[in-house]
């Protein structure tokens, strides 16, 4: 699992999410823990529809995928770049200067900010 490229991991996650729906979130969390990169303090996965958008969060696969965020959030299946601050708060690339307490709050803030617009995949590292 650690050798898996970020793109492959994202493709796999997206495929699982499409195939398994809501059940995908806990299923994909397990390999990250097995790979030894899972932060034991990482927030729990979530999967909900917020203001008509599907938002999902789960501990991240791949050690360097998000330079240590350790957690991945998707909006309608597209990854939202997320970062954890030293005090445990979170920010995303669409709301970068305004920390919120949880990844779910960051996902919801992003949906608010997008006002229905499609998120674009951020450039690969």
């Amino acid at each position: 699992m650690p050798e898996l490229s970020r793109r492959q991991a994202l493709t796999t996650v997206a495929a699982l999410a499409t195939a398994a729906g809501v059940a995908a979130a806990p299923a994909t969390a397990a390999p990250a823990a097995a790979g030894g990169h899972h932060d034991p303090h990482s927030p729990a996965p979530f999967d909900e529809v917020y203001r008509g958008r599907r938002i999902q969060g789960r501990p991240a696969t791949g050690g360097h995928a998000h330079h240590g965020a350790g957690y991945a959030v998707h909006i309608d299946g597209v990854e939202l770049h997320l970062m954890r601050n030293a005090d445990g708060t979170w920010i995303s690339v669409v709301s970068h200067y305004d920390p919120v307490p949880t990844p779910r709050a960051a996902a919801r803030a992003a949906v608010d900010e997008l006002r229905g617009a499609a998120l674009l995949p951020f450039p690969a590292n």
């Binding site: 330079h67 240590g68 965020a69 770049h81 970062m83 954890r84 601050n85 030293a86 690339v93 970068h96 951020f122």
Partner: peptide
Amino acid sequence: ILGDTDHG
């Protein structure tokens, strides 16, 4: 912005 992290 994407690359600068508190612990990296």
